[in-house]
Design a protein around this nucleic acid. Structure first.
Lengths: 210, 210
DNA sequence: TAGATTGTTAATCGATTAACAATC
DNA sequence: TAGATTGTTAATCGATTAACAATC
């Protein structure tokens, strides 16, 4: 998979296109066209059609001039590009409410993500389960990442301990982190991190309301 | 509050600066300097110091040349700019796990957000409470937004009904929406919306892992 | 073929960063 | 003053969009 100069916003939009195509495939009737023009994707997603064509063109010539993009083929290609044709093993650090919401989130399994464990430092939680997932002592996180070959770590712990736990994840061999803690995490450049920051989202709204 | 040509990424970074200053104020000792240079904020946040100075300069001349930015004053200014000196009334549509996590999220009250109600269409949930917050029938959402003067709505419902409920929120008079549903919501331009999309975050990671 | 939409170029727009005069 | 850091300009970098030749 080539990933030379492709903007990361393009990758985010590929997810949106993929979801859009799946939606069409799900709801369309037998007799409907199996091909979709970029302006139709624009209508559904609000993303400019030139943008859509340019994003897709980074990865190949998927379209048929004069007609549009073949629904099934393009959806399968996007799935492959996004790595959704593979299985991914995930762990969650933090057995709080947000961790619980993630465990119970249905979309996960469907997309090929399997949660292999939750980690916490609270003795009253360790050894119990959240949903159907076992809660381990945070001290074991490095060992289990190695043993189970975990790909992705999720941080849903307080800001104070986020860096420390992230370091342990990396030491265990994790390659990508999704961070919900409101703090900047410093990592080796080869580790990919995405941040989900609810305070920032809220304050972005209150700024405009003020 | 002027908001002419200010990029929305700048607003997001103001949140980060504010949090960074609060962190310093919280942890610093009596004898520490009450002034912080931009390179120090860069060290803590990973954001380029020229960027920091430029972002702040949109809103005024807060710094002292040769020294840096006065901690307390700048923090208070940012608070004001971000609208965190006001109280905000919030409702949540969707009494699922994510809604529950948001209700129990501590950071909310601290920043001046008060959750005034949760809404759901599931009869087995309506009339009960989530945490200490009452669950109303979704049919009442418009009425209660008006009656309670709600500013912000949170969508934590399935994609299928997100547009419909967003429309009701707008009809009730809401001015800003935080959308967790994986779908594009069409709104009048004066309504501000931010999207938090977990699938996109995950797929952004698996792309780089592939 | 005629009509339509892609793939791609070039123009535009916007955001980041380096550099430095201003100045505390 | 000498030293340091801001505020701001100009350069760079990157992303979006309009336009259209290519072509199904």
């Amino acid at each position: 998979m080539k990933k030379k100069n492709i903007p990361s916003v393009t990758i985010n939009r590929l997810s949106i296109y993929h979801r859009c195509l799946e939606k069409i495939l799900e709801t369309q009737k037998e007799e409907d066209l199996k091909i979709v023009p970029s302006f139709k994707i624009e209508e559904m997603t609000g993303i400019n059609s030139a943008q859509i064509r340019k994003d897709l063109a980074y990865f190949g010539e998927f379209g048929k001039r004069g007609f549009g993009y073949p629904l099934i083929d393009l959806s399968r290609e996007l799935k492959k590009i996004l790595g959704l044709d593979k299985k991914w093993s995930v762990i969650i650090a933090g057995a709080g409410n947000l961790g619980k919401a993630l465990v119970k989130y249905k979309g996960f399994q469907k997309k090929g993500f399997t949660i292999k464990g939750i980690f916490d430092n609270n003795p009253s939680k360790i050894g119990k389960k959240l949903g159907h997932i076992f809660i381990y002592d945070i001290k074991e996180i490095e060992k289990i990442i190695q043993a189970e070959n975990i790909n992705i770590g999720i941080l849903v712990i307080p800001a104070d301990s986020a860096q420390e736990v992230a370091d342990k994840m990396v030491a265990g061999g994790i390659k990508a982190i999704l961070n919900f803690a409101p703090v900047h995490i410093f990592l080796p450049p080869e580790i990919k991190i995405h941040n989900v920051d609810l305070s920032i989202e809220f304050e972005g709204l209150t700024y405009y309301l003020s």
